[in-house]
Design a protein around this nucleic acid. Structure first.
Lengths: 199, 199
DNA sequence: TGTGAAATAGTACGACCGGTCGTACTATGC
DNA sequence: GCATAGTACGACCGGTCGTACTATTTCACA
């Protein structure tokens, strides 16, 4: 039982470090210290650095599910649900209590030329996420909230661009207008897809 | 004279490493070995890791200028020049001979929560780049190629989103359609700004 | 309350990190 | 033609990395 609590604490501190420093910034020594544990005590939970990284990515995905997906799914199907998801998605890490940026987004650029299980795991998470965006968009089309001619794949692709641009301008450039820019871009994307929007 | 050649070689190998592994992946030992130099011989050129990083970022900017900006500036002012720039910008690292991705783009996500001169340098480069995009867009507006109501800042912001989304989908997800998606997104952005487009 | 397993600590390892040292060699300017 | 500055070398610094091994503590349950 104690073990479970320790593991939760490790994932908590590890996720914070991951969001700030990226995958390569999470080290066993620092994480052990942050969690008030010895390096070997930590090692007993994750038998390798790789397993720790995989667990941290899963924890990030779980947190995103709790803070983004679940509340969004309570909105009515179609456009409202899609809007709800996107609004909670953009900038979700800080609302979820993370001190840094989105772990998956930074990993997308950190590991783009690497190989191995960690990269594959992120690729799987990212594809799963895009599949969710795709299905919510398709649902909005099916319900007549968006045009039937909408290129759904293209829609999702551009949506991801908005997310990444927001991440870069909010977190790196520290542009206070990032939120507004993202919302305007999303509105424009919806308008192009034929959504009925207030002005 | 010999010194100059060594420095060029160091920047060359360093930039390759930077594009593949990111800033944290460039280490003095590995770079020295790649350039067939001792670590201390390398140190004679760059008196600290930080100075090396700054020099590498400048070299990346120089390369981008040669491969992206200069050829684009030969196109007629206004929309043609803007189009020329964007077309050469998207995916420029591989066309410039780099084995990895865009060093600035990955640094935008790698250093978003850090501090120091390196971060500031990247911020300056990025702002300079966005200012270039802004001025070319403003020129296209002034010449009547784009609507006068165009929100130029917003236009540039979304353009950066297209660049980042292309980077992620091409380099990480290895989606062969990345190029097409980026072009379609750019065309849609131009159409929204009132550009006269074929079909 | 005693015991065995689970959880954690302790210690050590080889490799690599950024950086410094003294020392050569070599190109360049006076 | 010689002083000087730049360039490169190999050895080495203290520190941290991931990982392995053994010892100790903690705790649930008999």
């Amino acid at each position: 039982m104690k073990s479970q609590a320790t593991r939760v604490s490790l994932l908590h501190h590890g996720l914070r470090a991951l969001s700030v420093d990226g995958l390569s910034g999470v080290t066993l020594g620092r994480l052990a210290e942050a969690a008030s544990l010895s390096k070997s005590g930590l090692f007993a939970h994750f038998r390798s650095k790789e397993q720790l990284e995989l667990a941290l990515l899963d924890e990030a995905a779980r947190l995103a599910h709790v803070h983004v997906v679940e509340p969004a799914m309570r909105a009515p199907e179609g456009l409202p649900r899609l809007r709800g998801l996107v609004e909670r998605w953009i900038g979700w890490p800080s609302r979820a209590g993370l001190p840094g940026g989105c772990p998956v987004a930074s990993a997308l650029f950190e590991l783009d030329d690497s190989e191995g299980r960690v990269r594959e795991h992120i690729a799987a998470l990212e594809k799963e996420w895009r599949e969710l965006l795709r299905s919510l968009t398709a649902s909005a089309v099916a319900l007549g909230h968006l045009n039937v001619e909408t290129d759904i794949e293209q829609f999702v692709w551009e949506l991801c661009g908005i997310y990444l641009s927001h991440h870069a301008s909010a977190r790196f450039l520290r542009d206070p207008a990032a939120e507004t820019r993202a919302r305007h871009a999303f509105d424009a994307l919806l308008r192009r897809a034929g959504a009925a929007l207030p002005s």
